[in-house]
Simulated scan of single mutants.
Amino acid sequence: MAIETGFDIPAIEISTFELTLVGDSPLIVHAWSEKAKKEILDMQMKVAKTKVRSIRNPAADFIDSLYWLTKKPAEPTMEAFYQAVAEGAEFGFPSVAFKAAAVSAGFRTGVTKNKTIPNSAFHINGDMVRIHGTPEIREDMVRVGMGAADLRYRGEFKEWSVILPIRFNTAVFTHEQIINLFNLGGFACGIGEWRPERGGSFGMYHVV
């Protein structure tokens, strides 16, 4: 069967640049811990649960809530955490969250007609991007299950920034449009726990 050649397909032009974002409100992180993953897997495999509840360790919950780019402390204590920070510990956040915020904000505000086009028009290199800042332990009262009260211990970056390595199709968006889209995402959606997209005010940011 002959291939139709009566039309031209223009060559794709990819441009790259680094985008610096600075937090406008604290960022609350909550990575999936190995314990939480095991509980989900046990539930899916119908493994019998023990009736003995493990002793709550706020330091361990806090350490496990962080996305570690360097080695996580072997001991789940605040002393071990501070030692890791003193030795240059680095923390990250899933890059897809920043892209999702930009795409969702563009669609929600009517800037883009759908999410398909922007999703394929630009990308952030790497699964994780480094968060510049030092996290602190945060305690929150939450409602779980049938409304029962529980405590959550998570990491919070009160002051933070991030550098995103961007690749985009210049035939779809301009450099300025990409910047505006990320600014919109930082204001309208945000990232992390209790962000504007979920009715909160945390995880907001702007482009420098």
Rank of each mutant, 00 (worst) to 15 (best):
E18H: 10
R167S: 07
Q177C: 08
Y205A: 05
T170G: 10
T50K: 10
S15E: 13
L19G: 10
E176D: 15
I163E: 06
N169K: 09
D61R: 03
I12A: 10
M141S: 12
V144N: 12
A121C: 02
G145Q: 06
T16M: 07
K37V: 10
M78H: 00
P135D: 15
G110D: 05
E75R: 09
F7W: 12
Q177K: 06
I124L: 11
G145H: 05
A84V: 15
W32V: 07
V47K: 02
N114S: 13
F157D: 10
A31N: 15
M78Y: 01
G192R: 00
M128G: 03
V207M: 08
E79W: 06
M128A: 02
R198N: 05
R143L: 15
F62A: 07
E87N: 12
V207S: 03
V162Y: 03
I191A: 00
I12D: 02
V103P: 00
F93N: 00
F182L: 03
L21R: 06
N119K: 15
L66H: 12
I178V: 15
K51F: 05
F81G: 02
K35H: 15
I28S: 04
D61Q: 14
G23P: 00
S54C: 05
I28Q: 07
V96Y: 15
T116C: 01
F168M: 05
D8L: 12
I166E: 04
S161W: 11
Y153L: 09
A149F: 14
F168R: 03
G190K: 00
D64G: 04
G190C: 01
V142W: 13
S201M: 05
A101P: 10
K46I: 11
D61I: 02
K115R: 07
I191N: 01
F91A: 02
E176A: 12
A11T: 07
C189P: 04
E90H: 07
E13F: 12
P73D: 13
L66D: 07
I131R: 11
T116Y: 08
F17S: 01
L164C: 10
F81M: 00
G199P: 05
E90S: 12
L69G: 06
K72F: 13
W32G: 09
R154T: 13
G199Q: 02
T112Q: 05
G199T: 08
E156Y: 02
E34F: 08
A84G: 14
V207G: 03
P196V: 12
S104Q: 12
I117E: 06
T116D: 03
I191K: 01
R195Y: 13
T109H: 04
A102W: 00
A149V: 13
S25K: 13
F202A: 01
M204D: 01
E79G: 07
F81Q: 02
P196W: 09
I55V: 10
A121Y: 05
E87V: 04
E18G: 02
K51L: 14
H30N: 09
M78S: 06
M128K: 10
E75A: 09
E197A: 14
A2M: 01
K99E: 05
A105M: 08
F107R: 06
V208M: 04
M128R: 11
A102E: 00
I9L: 09
E139W: 02
G145P: 09
E136T: 11
M43N: 06
